[in-house]
């Protein structure tokens, strides 16, 4: 079941496009924003509202990197693993993050505080290595800075 607020927001997006299905990505974003991830139940509810099959919507949901089809933690760490960050040592940052959080890429801490994911180029290559946590970008990373940065996220 979609909430009234979710339906209102999705309908706003539907009004902007010539066919209902075209709002599918926006609808996934809206529901994920409310619920943190897209469960099978959420997927079916969105698909029904857009007049498409759940399978077709799942083909869209699983195509994109930032729609989560599994539960994630309260805070998402996206560590850039692309070329400039490779040259500037993202691997040390990753090793240090693993030591601090005891999780690898694709995993969530047992207290649901953090999910750690690799991410392609974040477009701050002149300040590599780079990571994002939720909406915030951190540049010129060093292993020393990591602990301070993580403290901000409860």
């Amino acid at each position: 079941m979609l909430s009234t607020d979710e339906i209102r927001r999705i309908d706003h997006e539907i009004a902007l496009v010539p066919v209902r299905k075209a709002a599918s990505i926006e609808a996934l974003k809206i529901v994920q924003h409310h619920r943190g991830w897209i469960s099978d139940e959420s997927l079916q509810a969105i698909a029904a509202h857009l007049g498409m099959s759940a399978e077709e919507l799942d083909s869209v949901a699983t195509f994109y990197n930032l729609i989560f089809r599994k539960p994630v933690g309260r805070n998402i760490i996206l560590l850039c693993d692309s070329i400039s960050c490779y040259v500037m040592g993202y691997e040390q940052i990753y090793t240090h993050l693993q030591a601090l959080l005891h999780i690898k890429f694709g995993e969530t801490t047992p207290d649901d505080r953090f999910t750690l994911l690799p991410n392609p180029c974040l477009g701050s290559c002149d300040h590599a290595p780079v990571l994002m946590i939720n909406q915030d970008t951190y540049r010129d990373l060093t292993t020393e800075k990591l602990q301070e940065i993580l403290k901000e996220y409860k």
């Binding site: 692309s82 070329i83 392609p120 180029c121 477009g123 002149d126």
Partner: peptide, 9 residues
Amino acid sequence: MEPGTFKDR
């Protein structure tokens, strides 16, 4: 999203 590209930003 081309790795190493940050000009449009």
